[in-house]
Design a protein around this nucleic acid. Structure first.
Lengths: 208, 208
DNA sequence: CGCGTAGTTGATTGGATTCAACACGTGTGG
DNA sequence: CCACACGTGTTGAATCCAATCAACTACGCG
């Protein structure tokens, strides 16, 4: 539907809503604008020829995705939960960012953030044992999720976690239960998370 | 030892040799120059607090690593095999590369290449079953390794492959043998690789 | 020739996958 | 308001696959 520029500007300010499962952009599309997550969680996904799906990364409030390093998007992005995001025209990348200015400018930090999101997945599934993987995952997302009343908003479906960690939803469920029984985390609701014992969590997670 | 500028210039032209295991740069160091692989294979590694090591990515001839998106290196890099590389001062990034010129310039392609190397690991270990993972790995490296006499140079130690694929060296060995027995690959020597049946290899690898 | 490292192979054990059934919440229609 | 279906999440039980430990081989180097 048609939107006047004024409404677009307002939406950019207040944010555009998206329902879970909604597509933000598709791999191969010309990348005309960036996306910044305001609320909720977005996911980068990869579809194989056989239709298998892999969740490659999650993006949290404050993260930027869809950076135009190439003319076309290099992965597809969808809303993992209900979310609010903003679009930024690509040219907003430009102001005052000549390259080796690439050091610590906003844009280079956004690029680095995006790259780090993908690196992190490798580091997390690189661990042995699913307790360690899930612990590392919880430890990771806990640092990026918004908190309300001592509790983290944790709107990521189990299936997405499973795909991200290269396991089955059953294993995710069991392992989360295990962490609950160990009193390391608590989940007052399906989409709420409390880290009770950060140091033990980090210890089980092992790595960095 | 001290090097005159002339020798440095020459080395940049002809390439600097490094033995397997040699460190190229260390995570946290100020990143003063980039590295371009000429021959051999480099690896990005991550060391955890407990001393566990993970190979996060491989870099092949033509790849550039150590891009200065931040002031300091974001991972450590080592020679996975004997190799030849060149150093490029960071300011070589500069010429004519203002940012959204980031689209398809040499530098942005290098950044994208580096990011892709890390994404690829996630996609490969995201598969289920070690036959699929190893097949995907072989399929991946085969596209990047130099060929001599119909045969690919494959100088990557088994331990590195194991760490990259989040498995044990034993499993790598067994799975490679399996691929050999299926007539999909051949390995005339430990460090040589022939892909006999690319289509079946891709089929077993599953995804893209 | 002995030593050390990297690679290979075998046998056992443990842990993850799989399949099936069940629980729960939501939305729809009677 | 209840009945029902559907999607998502959870639990249980059997199977199978990969990790582990150990022994053995191959190779390079002093």
């Amino acid at each position: 539907m048609y939107q006047t520029p004024d409404i677009l500007a307002e939406r950019r300010a207040i944010g555009i809503p998206a329902r879970a499962h909604e597509t933000l952009f598709i791999k191969g599309e010309p990348s005309s604008c960036l996306f910044e997550v305001r609320r909720g969680v977005a996911r980068a996904v990869h579809y194989s020829a056989e239709g298998d799906r892999q969740v490659m990364a999650f993006f949290f409030p404050g993260d930027v995705l869809g950076l135009p390093l190439t003319r076309r998007h290099r992965y597809s992005a969808e809303a993992a939960s209900d979310m609010i995001f903003t679009r930024l025209p690509s040219r907003d990348c430009q102001p005052g960012n000549s390259f080796p200015a690439t050091r610590d400018t906003t844009v280079s930090r956004a690029i680095w953030q995006e790259e780090k999101s993908f690196m992190t997945r490798g580091l997390i599934i690189g661990r042995v044992g699913y307790l360690a993987r899930v612990a590392a995952f919880v430890n990771y997302v806990a640092k990026h999720l918004p908190m309300t009343d001592e509790t983290l908003e944790f709107p990521i479906p189990r299936g997405d976690i499973a795909s991200y960690l290269a396991t089955s939803p059953e294993t995710i469920c069991r392992t989360l239960r295990q962490l609950r029984e160990m009193q390391i985390i608590a989940m007052p609701r399906l989409d709420r998370l409390q880290v009770k014992d950060p140091s033990r969590l980090a210890q089980i997670a092992g790595g960095p």
